[in-house]
């Protein structure tokens, strides 16, 4: 095991993937707590499909992937948030419409621009850690740092908006601004994480840590901290597993997170039983 880890870090691309991936896992876990509690879990999924479409366009035009995908996905985030706020059912359907539409467009563009099937499936499922190029490093690290810093600075307001939006608004919190910020940060995180995890799997990174932590912990701070730690740790374990067992990268990480989720569920069950006995 130790040998596998040492081996892994001797490869430049694996080191890059682990650094960027850990930061993205942290961002995703932080934002995921708020998204899950606000019943917006599906937005991450919708955004990743839009991001996939945008990346396919960028590849076809030979443009810088992040420069195309980030603005497009941020715009989609605003749209989805607005739809989600209006009427529940309509919002749900709108997300499905936008995400499948973007996915289909992405597949067609990618096919027409002559991408091979393996490239396409790498986009969709994040099959290897090779997709983080050295030139992406500075932007990825800077964006991830921006997400983490703004989350910490706005922690109290994020809590207020997540717990009770009407009350927060009435007491003078600019809830529209906070919501917009959460969706921008989510869009950025999704685009950054997508190339590593795959468009179809990135939303797992947003929701599983929050769901796991909520099973066991009952305060917002402990849920946020636990989700972050759990997310980064399972990312690391998943990376090692993917490398050592030669498994597809994104899927290995999602399965690791699911295993941890199972452990948290079991822990919650034991906690309940202990309390009942008392």
């Amino acid at each position: 095991m130790i040998d596998a880890i040492r081996d892994m870090f001797s490869l430049g691309y694996m080191t890059r993937a682990v650094i960027v991936g850990s930061l993205i896992s942290l961002c995703a876990a932080l934002l995921g707590v708020s998204l899950v509690l606000k019943r917006f879990s599906m937005i991450g999924d919708g955004l990743s499909h839009v991001g996939f479409g945008a990346l396919a366009v960028a590849a076809a035009l030979n443009a810088a992937p992040l420069a195309v995908a980030i603005p497009v996905t941020v715009a989609a985030a605003f749209l989805l948030l607005r739809l989600g706020n209006s009427k529940r059912i309509k919002g749900d359907a709108a997300i499905a419409l936008i995400s499948t539409g973007a996915l289909a467009a992405g597949v067609v563009i990618s096919y027409l621009s002559g991408n091979s099937n393996s490239e396409l499936s790498n986009f969709l499922f994040g099959r290897s850690a090779l997709s983080i190029k050295p030139s992406d490093m500075p932007a990825s690290v800077a964006l991830a740092a921006a997400v983490i810093v703004s989350f910490i600075l706005l922690y109290n307001r994020v809590f207020a908006v997540t717990f009770d939006e009407t009350f927060a608004k009435a007491s003078g919190v600019r809830t529209g601004l906070i919501n917009a910020l959460i969706s921008i940060l989510t869009a950025v995180t999704v685009v950054l994480g997508m190339r590593l995890m795959g468009a179809l799997l990135i939303s797992a990174l947003l929701i599983i840590p929050a769901l796991s932590a909520m099973r066991v912990f009952g305060t917002f701070k402990s849920v946020t901290v636990t989700a972050s730690v759990m997310s980064v740790c399972s990312f690391f374990v998943g990376s090692v597993a993917s490398y050592a067992l030669n498994l597809p990268y994104g899927a290995a990480i999602v399965l690791t997170e699911l295993a941890v989720f199972g452990c948290f569920c079991a822990a919650a069950g034991i906690k309940r039983m202990v309390r009942k006995k008392k």
Binding site: L37, I152, L153, L154, Y155, N156, F159, A160, F163, D164, F167, A168, S171, G172, V173, A213, M214, F217, G218, T219, F220, K221, S222, V223
Partner: peptide
């Protein structure tokens, strides 16, 4: 919602500080 009583009560304070 996972929040402690203290966290909920504190969210009624409306300072702008982080």
């Amino acid at each position: 919602f996972p929040a402690s009583v203290r966290e909920v009560v504190l969210s009624g304070c409306r300072s702008r500080a982080p």
